[in-house]
Amino acid sequence: MTFEMFVTVMMNGLTLGALYFIVASGFSLIFGLMRTVNMAHGTLYLIGAYLGYSVYDLTENWYYAIAAGMTAAAVFGAIMQVTLLGWMQGQELRQALVTIGLSIIVADQLLAHYGGLSLQFFPPDALFGATAFPIIERYPTFRLFQIGAAVAVGVALWLILNRTKLGLMIRAGVDDREMLAAMGVRVSLVAVVVFALGAALAGLGGVIGGSAQPFSQGTDVRFLLTSLVVVIVGGMGSIGGTAIGAIIVGMAEQWGQALFPTYSVIVTFVIMAAVLAVRPQGIMGRPS
């Protein structure tokens, strides 16, 4: 292995991790903070990607696609929370079954409407192509953009959770829901806002992910699984943990592919099993 290849694979792992962070941060928000088991997170990713694609197809504008994908996923997420999940608070098995059912229904609807062909976004020229990069000469611009987007998402989430009144209410709700309600906060409304925010991040991931690699039927399951692994490895409800988890999973996939491609699929799960065995709450998780 040359040094150049080492740097390239490191960069690939980091940029893939950035994409996983964007998608999994929404999952972490919903699952880790609100304790809602949302097995339809991959579906929100697909909704963002497909609806974003409809707008992209119409306007040829990638930024509109981002806005449309985020909005569509957020609206769908809010509807899910209001009509289905809101009144099942704390009933994990029920939530899991309902969201799995929902994801199957939505996947079939998307198949009926958009067909089975793989689709892909093509980002604006400024982001397409390659940029000069030290040591390896050139590196795809869009993959660098993924890092930027992930950092922006991370910083924004941290600010919302730690520097705003909404963040204060979310964190208080995690610790003691009843007390928060008793103090006059409409907890159910906070839950809808958090769910919509998490869903919007999945939708953002859908459009950015759909620009990095094609999406089609089945992409939802892949991203749901990845999000689960990221959150389990990183620790529930911690933004820093999600970032660490995402980078570990991204690195594992890319190094696996570079070193032993045939068995690369299992590396991620080996890491997950190892974390569960040694530190069940995840790397940054609080022991329950």
Partner: peptide, 10 residues
């Protein structure tokens, strides 16, 4: 690479 791979950078 396994069937279903979507990231080919490596």
């Amino acid at each position: 690479s396994p069937l279903g791979t979507t990231d080919y950078s490596s």
